[in-house]
Amino acid sequence: MLKVKDLNVFYGRIHALKDVSIEVDEGEIVTIVGANGAGKSTLMWTLAGVLKGKSGSIIYRDKPHPTVAHEAAAGGIVLVPERRRLYANLTVRENLMMGAFLRKDIEAIKKDLEYIYSLFPILKERTTQYAGTLSGGEQQMAAIARGLMSRPKILLLDEPSLGLSPIYTAEVFNTILEINAQNTTILLAEQNAKKALEIADRAYVLETGRVVLSGSGKDLLQDPAVQEAYLGVRHKAI
C-alpha cells in the first residue's frame, strides 16, 4: 500500500532521514520504534505531505505519493500529529467535523460521529466544550477521533501515548486495535516500544535517521539489542 524507498529528508541543515526504506501493506499495523530525535516524526510529517524529501521515492497505492498535505489527506493518508494539535479555539464537535472537511456524504458523517461517540463516550459528554479545556488523555482521544472522521485509508499515529497515564495509554492501544479491526491500515510511531511492538504486525527500529532493524513485532520484542535499548532488559553482567 505504501512503499518508501531510500528516502532522504533534511530538516534545515540536519539530515533527519537517511536512506529510509519501509513498507506498509493493506490492513497491517506497522510500528516505528525509536528514541527522541531518531526521525520518527520527520518520517510522519513527510508521509503526510508537510515535509518534502530531498531524494528517494514514496509510492502510495501504486502511484507517486502526493507532496502537498491537503492532497495527501484527500488521498486517504491521515496524520494524527504528535502532541495532538487540536484546535483549542474550537469545540470538540467542531474539531471532529474538521476531520470530515473533505467529505460531502452528510449522512455517513453523522453515522461516523455516532460511532466515534460510542468509541469514546467521554467526547460525547464534552461535545460543546472547547478542545483546549480537555485533559491530555481526552485530547488524544479527540485527536484520534478527528483522524477517523476523515475515513483514512492509512492512519499515521505519531506518539499517541505521549504524556498519558497508564490507564489512558492502555485505552489508546485498545482503540488502535479496534480501528485496525475495522480495516484501517495503521502506521504507528512510538517511544513506548513494548506496547507498540506487542500490537504490531511488523516493525522498524529507527536510530539517528536510519532503519537499523526490521522484522515482525514479536521477533523484535525478542531481539536482545531491542530489549536492551528500548525495553530495559539487561543481558550483560555489569
Binding site: A69, Y87, N89
Partner: peptide, 20 residues
C-alpha cells in the same frame, strides 16, 4: 469553521485537507 481552525493552526488544517 475551517477559517477559525486555520487561525489556530494552519499546518493541522492542511492535514485535515484544507487547501491553505
Amino acid at each position: 469553521t475551517a477559517i477559525r481552525a486555520a487561525s489556530y493552526d494552519m499546518t493541522t488544517a492542511s492535514l485535515n485537507g484544507v487547501n491553505m
